[in-house]
Design a protein around this nucleic acid. Structure first.
Length: 436
RNA sequence: GGAGGCGUCGCAUAGUGGUUUAGUGCACCUGUCUUGAAAACAGGAGUAUCGCAAGGUACCGUGAGUUCGAAUCUCACCGCCUCCGCCA
């Protein structure tokens, strides 16, 4: 949510920002509703003040006739208040509907574009591997090795589910273990910051295993409930499954005021993510690229506004460090206005080379939301001068299991159908060199 | 799932219908004293919103209700604690 004062003062910027994101909102209408809201609010408050004054007099005066007179008058005023309050409620409800639809404004360095074709490659890393055979796609290799079984999962649970088995399971936990070591090791983080030339004080991430269920109301506050059809809903329990650990990490500090010196707060949350993939029918139906259920390690950072953009650069640098450690070729992409998330002001994706598909595919995302989510969540910071303002929030993938496994399988595939295990993972897999 | 208790300005507490503009202690900030600190003493200080200001209004888990007036009474919901049951 944006600050209504900011919207009033910058209505053209807000309207233009929404347009760039292809979101249809009427800022003018919001402002006229806000005029109405403020006017009625003032009227209600004036009437309440009148009642309070009279009530004080009733308790102080002894004269029963005067008391009776005042009570009679106040009964009438009360009816007035009730009517005005009703109107205020209606106005606020209309006002809120529009407020929730106004997206965050894209940063000035966000490329403009209608869809993913407008995204800009910022940099690339790594050499694409060359093969003296035709590289296969992950699901074929995985099926042959008996480590990915989507057929059984299809019968048991439906499409877009899978059984991961054997060494691939060990590799999942090796990846998680490796990444947790990176984000909880201050020396490594320091090294990453230095290499990336970022001016920020790195501190360890606190590992968290968050709940996978969330209240829809909280999801609204996270600005992640724009499309209900993309979520698994449990109306009997008024709960829904999270689509990312971000949803229950970012909402950990609702209605909390941090002290300035407590920030930044950095979390690394491991959870399963659930996605209905509505509207993706027929897309990426083979294998484990687009699953209803996958595990993921996700970063969430609460920071001071002046540091938050550097904070995003830091998170992207961590993502790159992970991919470089695994020796997977990737490109960093600045996501354009038409493709970025609703609460984001700036978004980068990392796309990793998938030789079987002969394409770069998204494996990581980094969302900088500024004060947009925190304003809804009411998560704030008290500055050293006593002023209180929304904290800034960033979230970003460390490693998303399905897609990273695919990248490893396809990049490290061998002519005999086996997979060479990246060196960085071997110590977590009993020193094993190949999955065969 | 059953029974009981509890949710008050960072923490701990007082407050059971009207001098409550929510009191007190700890912590916090400022000052006096001190070489400096501590202690002592004096003062300050919740959040949001409207207003140039004076000041107004809302907020005692959330929402509704009773009343001229609600932290206080009623109802619903949420959360926490204790005991019992069940269970990985």
């Amino acid at each position: 949510m944006l600050d209504i004062k900011f919207i009033r003062e910058n209505k053209d910027i807000v309207q233009a920002g929404a347009k760039k994101k292809h979101i249809d909102v009427d800022v003018e209408k919001l402002i006229s509703l806000d005029d109405e809201r403020l006017k009625v609010l003032k009227e209600v408050e004036d009437l309440r003040s009148e009642v309070n004054t009279a009530s004080n007099n009733i308790s102080r005066h002894q004269d029963p006739a005067l008391k009776a007179q005042l009570i009679k008058e106040m009964t009438l005023v009360k009816e007035d208040i009730k009517a005005k309050e009703e109107k205020l409620k209606e106005t606020i409800s209309e006002w809120q509907k529009i407020m929730l639809k106004i997206p965050n404004i894209p940063s000035v360095d966000t490329p403009e574009g209608d869809d993913e074709n407008g995204n800009k490659v910022v940099r690339t890393w790594g050499e694409k591997p060359t093969f003296d055979f035709t590289p296969k796609e992950h699901y074929e290799i995985g099926k042959n090795l008996g480590i990915i079984d989507t057929e059984t999962a299809g019968q048991v649970s439906g499409s877009r589910y899978s059984y991961l088995k054997g060494d691939l399971v060990l590799m999942q936990f090796a990846l998680i273990q490796m990444c947790l070591e990176i984000v909880t090791n201050e020396e490594i983080l320091n090294h990453i910051v230095k290499n990336a030339g970022i001016s920020i004080a790195p501190s360890k991430f606190l590992p968290v295993i968050p709940p996978v269920f969330i209240r829809p109301l909280v999801q609204v506050k996270m600005a992640r409930y724009m499309t209900p059809e993309e979520h698994y809903l449990f109306p009997n329990d008024d709960l829904m499954l999270i689509g990312s650990a971000e949803h229950t990490l970012g909402s950990m500090h609702m209605s909390k005021i941090f002290e300035e010196n407590e920030l930044p707060i950095r979390y690394a949350g491991y959870s399963t993510a659930f996605r209905r993939e509505a509207g993706a029918a027929g897309k990426d139906t083979n294998g484990i690229l687009r699953q209803h259920q996958f595990d993921k390690l996700e970063m969430e950072v609460f920071s001071l506004p002046e540091n938050s953009m550097q904070e995003q650069n830091f998170l992207v640098a961590i993502q790159e460090h992970v991919m470089q450690t695994l020796k997977l070729p990737y490109q960093v992409v600045a996501v354009c206005t038409g493709d970025m998330g609703f609460p984001n002001t700036r978004q980068f994706d990392i796309e990793t080379w998938m030789p079987g598909q002969n394409k770069y595919r998204e494996t990581h995302s980094s969302d900088y939301t500024g004060g947009f989510q925190s304003r809804r969540l009411n998560t704030r910071v008290r500055r050293s001068d006593g002023k209180i303002e929304p904290v800034h929030m960033n979230d970003a993938t460390v490693v998303a299991i399905g897609r990273t496994l695919i990248a490893i399988i396809e990049n490290f595939q061998q002519a005999d159908g086996s997979i060479k295990i990246p060196e960085a993972l071997r110590s977590y897999m009993g020193g094993k060199e190949f999955i065969k």
